[in-house]
Design a protein around this nucleic acid. Structure first.
Length: 434
RNA sequence: GACCCCAUCGUCUAGCCCGGUUAGGACAUGGGCCUUUCGAGCCCACGGCACCGGUUCAAAUCCGGUUGGGGUCGCCA
């Protein structure tokens, strides 16, 4: 007798991989790894109208991207005869009947209960209906029926799925009974809710893994964040790898309460993962990302791109943030942001001109030399370093905030720095003219 | 509406099973520090056991109810 545990993730290819589904897949995967269970992917593609190859590919792709792999994959659309056979058995035993070409199962109206591995004892006193279509008139099985037949035939021992399936469970239990099958164990995961506490729908914003991937979130961070929704690694830890999660995970420690999805926290987790990356790796991801978005200007030197990108590794929460941060490093047509007004009103044309002549004389434009010269110049002008730093930062980046000024200057290089300082001079000139 | 699930800071959670904690952490927010700035870093603060009963010397913890939130009621999955 094969005692190996088996779990399954059963997406239907009618849309991109949803955050909630991804979390279900993840918990199944973690459970499988922990107990050396087989992880089966079952494609529930019995809805001929809505199932699309494109969606299937996307789901498979997203799962792999998240690091979720599977041992076997089944497609329900290839198993239609099996469902029909079992449905016919029910017809033979008078537990189902045929009507308009469909096969309809007749429930015993018993009260029915089961022990949920997460929630404990759940009892349904009565069911709302006493019949259920199990084979549609087009010959395809309905969800509950195909699900039962497959879970038993594929040897699934633990069904770990979303809480929204709790109301399906009594129907399925009755089908198992009619079919003389022993039902698997059930564990119903809490829902992921929108930040307002409602259902996670299109209106909420990004609901598919694909969208987060496109926005520059790292798979490890998404996995980590999803893990935190409904489960805690303990010891006040927030950052936990998939491997550690496998070690620490217990189904019975999963929460029962629905969890609101917080983009703020996801951003924080992602920024933690970005900071942890080795610079080389971060550069690789970031460059790939910016190239995919066609963001980088044509013919820009790789070394320059790298220096620029690394300037921001500790300041972004997702790769897409890089676009606004680095814009002024790659393009000359950046503008001074609105909040720089108070800095720009203090006109320092003379001082900046003087600074330009000083900077121009530097032969090695590294941050140490630049800073030394910069501070000396400020002192010579009778200014505090800060008085000069602020307008210069605005001149160079268009913003009042950013990485250390001297690092920025080193990365931009002398030529760009001077060009941009002249631009500021010009800006003041024009302002005065008005 | 019927059935079902759930209930600790604004949010994610630890604690609950095996009653006795200043109810702990994280995100967010506010403030301070650092500094050339900051949305970076460091520190501090704010903030919670939904309510009502019961059991008990003692209840976030056990029991009941109320309220609130969520889910499901398709020849969708």
């Amino acid at each position: 007798m094969d005692r190996r545990l088996k779990v399954r993730f059963a997406p239907s290819p009618t849309g991109f991989l949803h955050i909630g589904s991804a979390r279900t897949a993840l918990f199944n995967w973690i459970f499988a790894k922990k107990y050396n269970a087989e992880f089966i992917l079952r494609i529930e593609d019995t809805d001929r109208g809505r199932s699309k190859e494109e969606y299937l590919n996307e789901i498979l792709d997203s799962l792999q991207w998240l690091g979720i792999n599977w041992d076997k994959i089944y497609h329900q659309s290839q198993r239609l005869e099996i469902y029909k056979d079992y449905a016919n058995k029910l017809v033979e035993s008078k537990k189902a009947f045929v009507e308009d070409g469909a096969i309809i199962f007749r429930y015993e109206l018993d009260s029915i209960s089961f022990d949920d591995l997460i929630r404990g004892y759940i009892e349904f006193k009565e069911l709302p209906k006493d019949t259920e279509v199990i084979i549609k008139s087009d010959g395809t099985p309905t969800y509950n029926f195909a699900c039962c037949v497959d879970d038993v035939l594929l040897g699934i021992t633990h069904v770990i799925r979303g809480e929204d399936h709790i109301p399906n469970t009594p129907k399925q239990l009755l089908m198992y009974r009619a079919l003389n099958f022993t039902p698997p164990y059930f564990a119903h995961l809490p829902m992921i809710l929108s930040s307002e506490g409602g259902k996670l729908s299109k209106r909420f914003g990004a609901t598919s893994i694909r969208e987060y991937r496109d926005a520059g979130y790292l798979p490890e961070a998404i996995v980590n964040y999803l893990l935190l929704l409904g489960w805690a690694p303990g010891k006040n830890r927030e950052i936990v790898s998939m491997e550690e999660a496998v070690r620490l995970f217990e189904l019975k420690n999963v929460n029962k309460t629905g969890a609101a999805f917080s983009l703020d926290k996801l951003d924080w987790v992602n920024s933690e993962y970005i900071k942890k990356l080795a610079s080389e790796e971060f550069f690789k991801y970031a460059k790939e990302f910016l190239e995919r978005q066609n963001f980088l200007p044509l013919g820009v030197e790789e070394e320059y791109v790298k220096k620029v990108i690394l300037l921001f590794q500790n300041r972004i929460s997702k790769l897409s943030d890089l676009k606004e941060w680095t814009y002024s490093c790659f393009f000359d047509n950046y503008t001074y942001s609105q909040d720089t007004q108070e800095i720009l009103v203090k006109e320092l044309s003379k001082e900046i001109s003087f600074l330009i002549t000083k900077l121009d004389k530097i032969s090695s434009f590294d941050k140490i030399t630049v800073e030394k010269e910069f501070r000396a110049t400020a002192q010579e002008l009778g200014l505090k370093a800060g008085d000069l730093v602020h307008p210069v930062r605005v001149a160079l980046t268009g913003r009042r905030i950013g990485p250390g000024l001297f690092e920025v200057m080193e990365v931009l290089g002398k030529e760009r720095v001077i060009k941009r300082l002249l631009r500021l001079l010009n800006f003041w000139q024009q302002t005065k003219a008005i």
